[in-house]
Design a protein around this nucleic acid. Structure first.
Lengths: 263, 263
DNA sequence: TCAAAAGTGTTGTGTGTACACCCATGG
DNA sequence: CCATGGGTGTACACACAACACTTTTGA
């Protein structure tokens, strides 16, 4: 059997250097039913066949990291998801894949609750799972339990110092919806009155639309848009489009920060 | 000429996946003469021959990321440096090395001012440079200017929420030395009286030794040790030793934080 | 005795928190 | 008119910035 055509990069690289396969894994988080959820696939092939895992796959020749992340998400979720994408960290290459050394670059996606099209190619199906159900080590294949824990912790701290909570919301949202995002991600209850004041009084977080909700119970709530269009998958000029394959370029900083209650 | 013996990992990896050379680059920071300095090498080989660059090199077969970082540092600085090591981010693989696609995993080292042994193997020499002198884009080869900027920003924010400022100090130090670390990294002047109260009153930052300085001008200062032995190169059970090749495992958190002055 | 550096006391200002209270809608 | 949720006013506690002041050494 002839070897498959596999373009190998780094022909000018010094001898002795390792050539490693690289995967991209995505921790895609959303808030649904007032709880933090993560997008997981059921693996259809070995290793860890049948187990839950983060969506992801191998980087292809000529492909950038962020591009690989969005491609894998699109393949396994069935659609190109909206949201904010940032690099989480790199794991490996030793002792994390039974097939041998594999480097894995993890990405974090914060997204509104987008619908899934069940047509994964190499996965039996992708679905949202409550994070609380799968946070214990061993619930996921590979070292994805640790990656998920790192992603959740990153999201929790990002909400304090950046306006990225709005990445979980749709194009227009109320202060109460934003508060439920904070409550779900942090796992706490926040005072609605103080939160409203804090959110509307923090520069760089919200912009008024002048519109209001209607139809629900109680007084109509003001509708807001995110003050910053977070760099992300759909954003023109965002990370994926420009091939900016570095770690998180610090977005706009919240000042004063919205600190989570300390125990 | 027979091909060099190059163990190629990932034999069971699906065809079509890229096999990439991976480098590790280190942003090694220290404080000397009340200014933040970074360890740089003058490149002795192409590409960017003669230019300044971050110390680093290719990951070898069978080697972990953190192990590669410490090995490169030891090779290019001449000694195994002390300090705290954490992963900064991953860059590439496209458009950052004229030789072709190369993935680069950057690490951040916060270290006391350790002496250098000028015996680099593939570098003409390693030396400390004031960060202010080389922060402008284009001062360094490759994309190392951006990596340095990311590392400096990471260090600045780490000092607010973690006790890692002590990683810049020796085994015993005074509150004034610690204050000069904060002043150098943040580029601000801090009130010595208020800083002293804040530092000594923050749990998890300092432990008294009962000893005092002597010989200098003025009243002797109390000597302290770091409350946390930061995971790092020399620490038993640290990242490098255990092959823990993930991103920053969040160390002890400072509560209350030591916030830098906002403009 | 003076200069220098370390460390403490005190006070004004601001920010977070708790909660009383008012506003606007649907049933 | 009442329930429901949205939003404002206000008092208290606490934390930080500013700076006067004391302590302890070397010259």
């Amino acid at each position: 059997m002839p070897p498959p055509s596999r373009p190998v990069a780094g022909a000018e690289v010094p001898p002795g250097a390792a050539l490693l396969p690289v995967t991209v894994d995505v921790v895609a988080l959303t808030v649904r039913d007032d709880a933090l959820h993560v997008l997981l696939v059921e693996r259809g092939v070995e290793p860890f066949r049948g187990a839950l895992a983060l969506p992801g796959g191998f980087v292809l020749p000529g492909e950038g990291l962020a591009a690989a992340a969005t491609r894998e998400l699109a393949e396994e979720a069935g659609i190109a998801p909206p949201g904010y994408l940032e690099q989480l960290g790199t794991y490996g290459p030793l002792g994390r894949d039974p097939r041998g050394p594999v480097l894995s670059v993890a990405y974090l996606l914060l997204a509104p609750d987008f619908g899934l099209v069940r047509a994964g190619s190499d996965a039996a199906g992708a679905a949202w799972h409550p994070v609380a159900d799968v946070l214990d080590p061993g619930a996921l294949g590979f070292d994805h339990g640790r990656i998920l824990a790192d992603g959740v912790e990153r999201a929790r701290s990002k909400l304090e110092y950046s306006p990225l909570a709005t990445a979980f919301c749709g194009p227009e949202f109320t202060v109460a919806e934003l508060r439920r995002v904070y409550e779900a991600v942090w796992g706490v209850r926040l005072d609605p009155r103080n939160f409203s004041r804090k959110a509307t009084g923090t520069p760089g977080l919200l912009v008024e639309t002048g519109r209001f909700t209607s139809g629900g119970a109680g007084r109509p709530a003001a509708l807001y848009r995110a003050a910053v269009r977070a760099p992300g998958i759909q954003g023109v000029g965002g990370s994926a489009a420009t091939g900016d394959d570095g770690p998180a370029s610090v977005p706009v900083v919240l000042d004063p920060p919205l600190l989570r209650p300390r125990s």
